[in-house]
Simulated scan of single mutants.
Amino acid sequence: MPLDNIGYLFQAFLVINLEDFDFPLSDDRIAKYPAKNRDESKLMVVQRKSGKITISPHFRNIADWLYPSDHIFYNETRVSKRRVYLETKNQDRIHETIFIESRDSQYWNCLVRNSKKLKLGDILFSPVQKLEFIVFEKREKDIVLKSNITILEEFFDQEGNIPIPPYLKRKSEPIDDIRYQSIFSEGKAANSIAAPTASLHMSYELRKNLIEKGIQFHPLHLEIGFGTFQPIYDEDIIKKKLHKEKIFISPDTAIAHSLASENKERRIALGTTTLRSLEAMYRTSLDIRSGWEGETDIFLTPDDTIDTIDGLITNFHLPKSSLLLLVSAFAGSELIMESYKLAIENDFTFFSYGDAMLIVD
């Protein structure tokens, strides 16, 4: 390793040690299925200034902690059915495939299970239409598949499955088609590989009640990639960069955020993808009120200062994950790790279908 990299590594470890964000979690603490109703998950409220932690039996009680003047910013993205079980010609082998991104709708970067059994030129077939996919290129972390036709979202609707997270250790079921989508994604184009999971707690009734209370909702759009499930390494901390994700923030949402800031009204981010989007806009845009569209690889860690929000609604995340570091950047590492310990002691469930946390001052 070059000497300058060693210096950066030493500097990074002075600030962040991933081991500080590790915690034991038994398998039964991972929610394999969603709560019966969206707003019936448990809620933990963490107050940054006082350090007080309050446990509430249901997420819908979040209304008690929100003010009529609050603004909730949310990610409206919809999950695409990008998990397809491709078959060999004689159907003697099935390769579970996640279609990550396309170059021109015919060449796709994919994660393929049992990819070592494939060689260049091999042909896989889709289960319903029997469309051909040629193994065009094998790379270190993924495979490039070439289709014989243009692949559009209609293909995934017919052939694919909702790509629920790998830690659920099961195949997707009909309930996931509904509950692994947020209510905000209805009618939107499907272009994400994972859900903005904090939004999964929001029910139509709860949203209606919050709006009647005076709370305003503002959409933005971040396409969530499969990188959200990938582990992070010391090198990521050094570079302060993660996987790239596409973001669109309309002028209306940008203006609403700017006005809320000027009027000292609380800006609540519904989910970490929303926080990442707002931070990306403010760190790169020269004219905030015009909105913003672009890509970000921003990696927010506890040594960062976050000024774009006054509150965060989020789930309980994986140990040593980028999302846990991001939440710690907003609330402080010690307080977050204390709250996670308390969550485990009080039988909270974790990850995508698990319980929720509200962080406010």
Rank of each mutant, 00 (worst) to 15 (best):
L3D: 10
N5S: 15
Q11H: 12
L14F: 13
V15Q: 14
I16T: 15
E19N: 13
D20Y: 12
P24C: 00
L25H: 03
L25K: 02
R29T: 02
I30D: 06
I30M: 00
E40M: 05
S41M: 02
K42R: 07
K42E: 07
R48H: 04
G51H: 04
K52Y: 08
F59A: 04
N61E: 08
I62V: 05
A63K: 14
D70G: 00
I72R: 00
I72P: 00
F73R: 01
F73H: 03
N75D: 07
V79K: 01
V79E: 03
S80V: 14
R83M: 15
T88V: 10
R93V: 13
T97G: 09
E101P: 00
E101F: 04
D104K: 01
W108H: 09
V112H: 09
R113N: 12
K117S: 07
K117N: 04
K117W: 01
L118T: 05
L124S: 11
F125V: 10
E132G: 00
F133L: 05
V135N: 00
R139Y: 09
E140D: 15
I143C: 05
V144F: 06
S147I: 08
N148F: 09
N148H: 11
I149E: 01
T150Q: 06
T150H: 01
I162S: 02
P163A: 10
P163R: 11
P166N: 07
D177L: 14
S182L: 08
I183D: 02
F184K: 04
A189F: 13
S199W: 14
L200D: 15
H201G: 06
H201M: 13
E205G: 05
I211M: 09
G214I: 04
L222A: 09
E223T: 11
I224N: 01
F226R: 11
F226S: 15
E235M: 11
I237T: 08
I237H: 09
I237Y: 11
I238W: 04
I238E: 13
I238Y: 09
K239S: 13
K241L: 06
L242E: 11
S250E: 14
A254H: 08
I255W: 11
A256C: 11
A256Q: 13
A260T: 06
G271V: 11
L275N: 10
E279K: 01
T284N: 11
S290V: 10
W292C: 03
P302I: 12
D303Q: 11
I306R: 15
D307M: 10
I309C: 09
I313F: 01
I313V: 08
S321I: 15
S321E: 10
S321M: 15
L323S: 07
S328E: 08
L335C: 02
I336V: 14
I336E: 13
M337P: 07
L342Q: 09
A343L: 06
I344M: 06
E345P: 00
N346M: 04
D347K: 00
F350E: 10
Y353E: 06
Y353G: 14
D355L: 04
D355Q: 05
D355I: 05
L358C: 01
D361K: 05
